[in-house]
Structure formats: C-alpha cells, structure tokens
Write a protein that binds this DNA or RNA. Structure first.
Lengths: 256, 256
DNA sequence: GGGGAGAGATGCCGC
DNA sequence: GCGGCATTTCTCCCC
C-alpha cells in the first residue's frame, strides 16, 4: 500500500523519464471518446508505457478493459479520499478518468527494447506457399507473380489453370466463413468486369470452411481447397533439435 | 533486480494463490501455436493474471507482443545464466518459452473485481436509436421489432418504407467500407430469395462512407444515410455538468 | 491521413 | 463447441 503523495511524486518522475509503470489499484473508470464506458470499483492492473500509452486490465481475460493510445497526457489530483488520474488524448478526443481508491503496489522501470517480433504461419506465408507449390491448387495451375495491389484489388494469388482460364485465389489461415466467400466474390467480379471475361474461376484456400460458407461458395460457382498455413519454424525445429534455447521449444513441440 | 531463486519461490506461491503478477525483465521469447514467432532479447513487461492468462508488452504499442490464454501452465527452471519460463496451454496446443536474462522488478497482488464494463455508443445502440427514431432513415419508415437472428441472418434493422417496400438496414459505427456494403448485399439477397421479392431496398447507415464503398453501394442500387452512433453519457454530461465523478455514471443508464 | 485487409486477433451471443 | 459478427478492435502497408 502506497500513500497518494508519494505515488504522485514517483509517478510524475517516472513519466518525465519515459519509464514504464505497473500499478495495482482499486479504482473506478470512465471512458469517453470513440465510445463511452463506465466500470465501477474493483481491483485492476494499470500499465503505462514509455510511449505514454495506457492499458487497464481486470484480473481475468486477455483484452484490456480500458486503454488509451500513445502520447496521452496524465494528471493526478487528490480529491477527498481518492486520487483522480485523468488521462487525455486531445488529438483523438479521448478521455479516461480513473478514480483511484487504493494503491496496492507501484513499479517503475526504464525499459529498452529495439527488437521486432518475427511471425510465421500467416496468410502471407500461405500464399507464398501456393506460389511455390502451385500443385496445391491443382495440376497445371500457373500462378502469376503475386500482386497484392493490382488494379483488380488486393488479390492473394492470381493465375491461369491448365485451360488458360483466369483463377483468383483467396487464402485464409483459419476456418473460412461468409466474409471470405464475399471477399472472393468481390474480387472475381472485379476481374471479370475489368478484363471483360465471362469465365473467371474463384478458389478459396483454407484449412477449414463452415457448412454455410461452403454452400454459398458453391452457389456462386466457386471452389474450395483444403490447405493449411505453413509453420516454418516448426519445420526448422524438427530438423535441428540440438540447439540451446530453441531446442527446448522444439522438444516441447513434440507433444504430438 | 531480483535473484532467480527468490523469484521462483515468490512466483510459484503467487500462482498457487491465484494472485496477479507484473514482472519487468529482459528476455527472449519464442511462441508456437496458431502461428509461430520469435522475439530476441529486450526489456518487457510480463503480466500474469488470476485466470492464469499471460500478456507480454514491449515498451511501446497498445497490443501485446505475445500472450497466452487463460488456464495456461507455468514452469520455471534455471538454465545456465538464464531463467526459463515455459508457459503451456495443452488443450489449445500453444507454447510460449521465455528466456529471462534479468528481472528488474516483480509485483504480486490478489485482485478482486466483480464489475463488468458498460459501454455505450456501439453499433447495437445505433440500431436501437434507429428503431426509436425511424425518421432518421426517412419519413414513413416503419421498423419491425429488431430481430438479430432471423432466418434471413443477423440483420441490424428491418422494416417497411412508406410504399410498403421491405427495407434492410446495416448500421456501422465507423466509416463504412467495402465489407459493410458486401454485408448489406448479402442480407438483401438473402431476404429477396427467402421472400421471393424482386424489390428489397438496402440502406447503409454510418457516420461516414469511403468513396469506393459509396460507388459500390450505388452500383448495387443501395442507399446511404449519414447517421452517427449515439453517446448517451456525453449527452447526459452536457445536461448535468455539476455532479461529482460517479453520480453521472449511475444515472447514465437512464439515458433516454 | 485514409483506405483496405489481416490478426496467434478477442469477446459476445446464440444454437 | 462452432458460427457469425462487432470491436474504443490494432497493426501493417500502400496510396
């Protein structure tokens, strides 16, 4: 438990040094901006980052209950028994008011991190895989070099089949739904119109598809290919299982 | 700075008591599950919640760089100069390995929070507003009681115009895009087919619409209405600007 | 800055 | 659990 006066001093000092902060506190919260929200009194974790963004987490769930974007302004004032923390982002017209009733703990730290996460197994990797292995779609499929931003739109993969009919492919890394079919439909219609072609094939590539989406797909005359996104690191790990840090990962992967 | 042995003991005790934790540390991270990722050494904030979910934040940005869902398992082991924190969610087949090089600070706290956030200004509030004020769409519009899950789909608002022509309305709280138009199109087509009607009107209600989306909208013969989501609390605050922090919140439920 | 689309999206609700 | 959809989505990339 930390007194408000000591906290105010520490908080403002940390803020001026662009340190990151973690606060455990009981508080009530009101947000006003893109929407409006209220959250009555309870225990939460408040994070303030070096970029002056803020996140508030309840003790459960993976999404923050309230937050403010970077470059927000912070002001602390004691009001009666409580400490008001007012967070403002004037350019975005967003306001967060936190009535802090009790502070359980406070940590501050200057954090240095120049690293950027590298992710594999995304939809992009999936279309790369299709480009490199066109037979995943069908024998004789000839993909054109992928053009995300053609005049036809943001098409994942684009090519010709064995009969030189144009093929538009939409890849989804997860179970394909109505939205994926609608998207494919929009692209196919665009290409048909732009090229003045009657026949353009549409193919949805995904590990799964919902029954409704598949029905809609067939109604439009499109096709489904069951294809899963690649996991490059996993493959790498299986090949090279003798490394230090990563080796344990690998072993832990061998749960299947 | 905290020693690994002391940390292990504190961490495991906190875990067994379902406390929440905040850790500032330098670490490397590897994730494997729905996708795969790696993040080289840097300073981060690690949160572990009462529900045994985990969030890892870099010093900037509002989204976590890595995370694990609730009910994950945690295991700590000293390996050479580092402390390995292995997080596992076996049912989801997700694995997170954190190589902790240095711990700057550690906080733990039992958090109690039974409150649920109340949000206004959502799309749902928008369709409620249209139901209560049908003239926002046009003179003579008669909304039917809203049925989110009709056999026609999850239609926002549904009604008849002055000439008893069926009207399907899709509301968007933000600037409407291609996806919104596609969605409206899908609903209109569904209703046309289900009811065997030639003429069903489609209206997109949103505060804004992109030029491309508006063109597509008109190509399909649909219409746009410029309507913004309501902000009940804001209206209330303007009327009653002399209350203390919380009285407004409570009454803000009586928004209309 | 807006538009368009993916995300390890998350969360909610309904079946 | 899956399906369908909104989200104060967030993030990225391109124009």
């Amino acid at each position: 438990m930390i007194g408000f006066h000591e906290f105010i001093s520490e908080f403002n000092d940390a803020l001026s040094r662009c340190e990151s902060m973690a606060i455990f506190a009981r508080c009530e919260i009101v947000y006003s901006g893109r929407a409006e929200s209220q959250l009555l009194s309870g225990d939460r974790m408040l994070l303030i980052k070096s970029d002056k963004s803020m996140l508030i987490h309840q003790p459960t769930g993976s999404a923050p209950v309230n937050w403010m974007k970077e470059d927000s302004d912070y002001a602390l004032d004691i009001e009666g028994d409580s400490l008001m923390l007012r967070v403002r982002n004037l350019p975005l017209k967003e306001y967060l008011d936190i009535k802090i009733e009790e502070i359980y703990s406070f940590s501050r730290q200057k954090l240095e991190d120049g690293q950027k996460i590298i992710i594999t197994g995304s939809e992009r990797d999936m279309s790369d895989m299709i480009l490199e292995n066109p037979e995943l779609i069908e024998k004789g499929f000839k993909p054109l070099s992928r053009e995300e931003h053609t005049k036809y739109g943001f098409i994942d993969v684009f090519g010709y089949d064995a009969n030189n009919v144009l093929v538009v492919i939409e890849a989804k890394r997860y179970s394909a739904d109505f939205k994926a079919v609608s998207q494919l439909r929009r692209y196919v219609e665009k290409v048909r119109k732009s090229k003045g072609l009657e026949k353009v094939r549409g193919i949805l590539a995904a590990p799964q598809i919902s029954a409704n989406a598949e029905k809609m797909l067939h109604d439009f005359g499109f096709e489904y290919r069951k294809i899963s996104p690649p996991k490059y690191m996993e493959r790498f790990h299986k090949k090279q299982s003798n490394l230090n840090f990563f080796s344990d990962k690998k072993d832990s992967k061998n749960h299947d």
